[in-house]
């Protein structure tokens, strides 16, 4: 019910992000979505990509601080208000969202998010009939 996300710890310093992206390029790994929030001293770059396990291994081998985690990827119709409806369901069930980002992929909206209670989120997704992407779905769309 989830997809893999890479979380890369990078210094707030020029060249730090390029180094990570160049490694992925060499391995012909394609980014599907990525986000960085900024703080004064460090950033966490979150990446959804093709072959996430391979990406994790090559980054780790290159000495990059990286972790691989599971996030939800909810599929939405590409229409106004769909994100509001989806997130309202989670809010109603008392599930708080740690972070969230979204993008469009082949005519579908995708909401990526992580919650503090993955088990309950999975139940809510199932009981409300929300569509979620699996790892293989993402790769197929590329």
């Amino acid at each position: 019910m989830t997809v893999h996300q890479l979380s890369v710890f990078i210094e707030n310093k020029s060249g730090a992000l390029v180094r990570v992206l160049r490694i992925l390029k060499q391995e012909k790994i394609q980014l599907i979505a990525s986000t960085i929030a900024d703080t004064a001293d460090f950033g966490i770059c979150r990446i959804i990509c093709s072959q996430p396990e391979k990406a994790y291994n090559v980054l780790k081998e290159a000495g990059v601080s990286v972790s691989l985690c599971e996030v939800f990827a909810v599929e939405l119709d590409d229409r106004p208000g769909m994100a509001a409806d989806a997130i309202e369901i989670f809010a109603r069930e008392g599930i708080s969202i740690a972070y969230l980002y979204s993008f469009l992929l082949n005519g579908k909206g995708v909401l990526i998010f992580r919650t503090d209670n993955a088990e309950k989120a999975a139940e809510v997704i199932a009981s409300n009939g929300l569509n979620v992407f699996e790892e293989k779905d993402l790769s197929r769309l590329l």
Partner: peptide
């Protein structure tokens, strides 16, 4: 330097700092 296994959570990283 952080260890390899790191926390994907700004709040926790800031609390650690």
């Amino acid at each position: 330097e952080m260890k390899d296994l790191f926390i994907d959570d700004y709040g926790k990283l800031q609390a650690l700092t």
